[in-house]
Design a protein around this nucleic acid. Structure first.
Lengths: 333, 333
DNA sequence: CTGAAAGCGCTTACAG
DNA sequence: CTGAAAGCGCTTACAG
């Protein structure tokens, strides 16, 4: 790769002049400029962004930390963040943790060390101190979906209301034995969903069908939904409706129901975090539509805004909460 | 963030000594070492990987360029690459292009300029010259899935055989009117799939049902499969089987078939690039199982190997081709 | 065992 | 309008 020096030599000027010409930060004689650009072209030079960053203390890179990509909203969100970031002149670094706090810690440490100007995270909730540390050291952080720390900006959906509304919707359809497929309630959105579910059932004087046993499978997976459903069917044979925290779980649930011989007129199903997939299935799934792209764009925008603000303006964390809309489909007919 | 200098000052030694102690590249007196580590701890110092890279000409980062993540094998592959890369001490930078050559060009240019030691790409095929350029400038490149340039190392599956075998499988099931849902045949795997399909039909003396009109939707999407299927049904009302290039298309196809009132006893369906999702659907889909994780791991491994080899050993590109295995499921019963 | 110095590729006051 | 110099945070021969 050609460097500034090479260009300078070929154009017969000092590197500083080349630098100025390229960033047109000062007046450079048109003639000189011409020579410089000719040299740039000849050597097909392009500046090393890293060293520029070194000097400017900026890297134009943001880190994304998510549990996993496969079949999750995180793949949509990561895409949205990358899109927005690219527009704003930033590159994105991706890490996934499989919800393993150790891996997460590793990722956080790599990202803080000169790799990124800011971090967007859907975390495990087990590295909150480290995250505060990182923020305190001057690297802005935004939480998405999982708001684990009130002191860190966040972009989420209202999971509590979402579960609450879904229960009421099912009640109006005549369902009385409503089960909840949920994740670890130590994680914020799962706790919120449980609360919404719990409150709605309480008000309606129904009883809960849940399963609090810890599980092996990844929360955001088909298998999780499948196995969880099989267990709920054991726990409550009279089940007439199911809430699934995410689409992947709902799909697994649908499969389990089918294998057990149930149809949607026996057991209705709602996904609490619907992506486009839900609408395209053989039996399309009623879902609270999750605004993945809005969340990704918003998270990227507020992070970059923070990065480009003075440190002192960053004091108060901002919290955004999006609504989800219920879209009725075949799984609740 | 604390720097080497801060640590040096606190430990009362020169920065070079601190550097040596941290990299234990030379003997440092145990006492001094102790003081240094104490200082490191007190300041919670961790080295700036970027500046280290500047000096060493290395960044320990690899770039991944894929069309999109949502509902594609690329999300699995990206995850696998990140996993393997992390083990090998590398971070991954992610870019998606939506199969837009312009965006791809932008991504390639950012990645080459000091961001990455190597690049893994599933490309559009429209920036081959740029990619060769990048490789020539000393940044190793590996193609995945889409082998657009014989001079660049690649990790792919045998898409031709895959389509060929699938047709024969359907033939044995009694199907005679077999349609193909495919992408742009300028892209390598789509061309290969078409060839496999074409050759098999020719040998069996069947005729083709395809649609070559260019389309608006992203190839790797549910809508693409849905609309494509609707069109094939128009073109050939006697269709009794469908091949879909990827899972997302197959799911869209299944939905279209259902809406038109067909079941799997009317029209059988095979996905040529199956992920775990195919097996968990309401009607599980027969698929050529795509080894996404093996591909991701392999791509990362050979890329890092290249990065860490001498330039001269990189001359000859390596090409890996994985097999896919047909797993029969309900969609062909 | 340790310090002083040069350098990675760039930017940016400071002179002139 | 342009060059010389210092510096971003680190590493690594070179002396001693």
């Amino acid at each position: 790769m050609a460097t500034l020096k090479d260009v300078a030599k070929l154009a017969n000027v000092d590197v500083s002049t080349v630098s100025r010409a390229l960033n047109n930060s000062a007046n450079v004689h048109p003639e000189t400029k011409k020579r410089i650009f000719a040299a740039v072209k000849e050597l097909s030079y392009s500046p090393n962004v890293i060293s520029r960053g070194l000097k400017q203390g900026k890297r134009n890179t943001i880190g994304i930390i998510v549990p996993r990509l496969t079949l999750t909203v995180f793949s949509d969100i990561a895409q949205a963040i990358e899109e927005e970031a690219r527009k704003l002149g930033y590159t994105t670094i991706l890490c996934h943790t499989e919800d393993n706090p150790k891996i997460e810690k590793e990722c956080l440490n790599r990202l803080r060390n000169g790799f990124t100007d800011g971090i967007i995270i859907a975390g495990t909730g087990r590295n909150n101190r480290l995250i505060r540390d990182i923020k305190a050291s001057g690297i802005p952080v935004v939480q998405i979906i999982r708001k684990q720390d009130i002191m860190i900006s966040s972009v989420v959906v209202d999971s509590k209301k979402c579960a609450y509304d879904a229960v009421n919707f099912l009640y109006d359809k005549g369902c009385r034995e409503i089960g909840l497929i949920n994740g670890d309630t130590k994680l914020m959105p799962y706790q919120m969903r449980y609360e919404g579910y719990h409150n709605a059932l309480k008000k309606l004087e129904l009883h809960e069908t849940i399963n609090n046993n810890p599980r092996e499978e990844n929360i955001n997976s088909l298998e999780y939904g499948y196995n969880y459903t099989m267990e709920l069917l054991e726990i409550n044979p009279h089940l007439d409706a199911l809430l699934a925290a995410v689409d992947a779980q709902a799909i697994g649930a649908m499969r389990a129901l089918k294998e057990r011989g149930y149809t949607s007129s026996d057991i209705k199903l709602i996904s609490l975090m619907g992506q486009t997939l839900a609408g395209m299935l053989e039996t399309s799934i009623t879902a609270m539509e999750f605004p993945a792209f809005e969340i990704g764009h918003t998270a990227a925008a507020i992070l970059v805004h923070d990065i480009e603000s003075d440190e002192k303006d960053r004091e108060k964390p901002q919290h955004f909460r999006f609504a989800e809309n219920l879209i009725e489909r075949e799984s609740t007919w």
